[in-house]
Amino acid sequence: MRGKVPFRAVVRSEWSKLRSVRATWWCSAVYLLTVGGAGWLAAAGTDTAPRADVAISTALTGFGVGQLVLVVLGVLAVTTEFSSGMALVSLAAVPRRTRLLVAKTLVVAVWCALLTVLLVVVCALAARTQIAVPGGMSMRNPDVLRALGLQVGAAALTGVLAVGLGAVLRSTAGALGAGLALVMLLPPALALSGGWWQVRLSQALPALRVGEDAFLAAATTWQVGMAVIAAWAVAAWVLGAVLLERRDV
């Protein structure tokens, strides 16, 4: 018997899946336009900033809401398989289910990261050309690079979280609702209600804007912010993988 199918074949198939549906291109276009547009507008509306990292932070404002689109993209990549019945065919073709989920997650996470790399370059350019910073703004400034890198990392993790939610809940409405609540509604709602516990809880939720300047949510250090979103992404994904292995299609 010939050898088993190489993992890269499954990855190639998942990449073909992702790019052969319109939803992917719609989501990607909306993501690029909202985050890039918001970043450019925010930068254009700001004349000066005291430090380079403040300037870059202004230009990254759009990620606060824009990354929600990545949740939609990741969720749809999984739930449309189940809603269309495609999962029957997909899992018959790749019966090692965790392998299939790993390939899909990889493709979604890499796509999210690539789009975000493009965006942070646009946002950095906006900050540099539109906002005056004493001493100028060097792209080699470690604070600037860290702020940009964090967005890329957070975008990839958001993709993983979305795929995980999709695998757990299987329904588009359910997974989108849960994703929206986790990254968009609960963190600011809890932070604004103001109690000590509520604020702690808000910090423990994966708000989209990672770092000190959390968008409407309670601020954390960037290390805590990344740890929180990574923990949520891993937890949702592992639960999704376990359920995918166990459940019937």
């Binding site: 199918v5 074949a9 499954v10 198939s13 998942e14 073909s16 073709a93 790749v94």
Partner: peptide, 8 residues
Amino acid sequence: RVLAESNA
């Protein structure tokens, strides 16, 4: 194509 690729 998606299915063919998944099994090389």
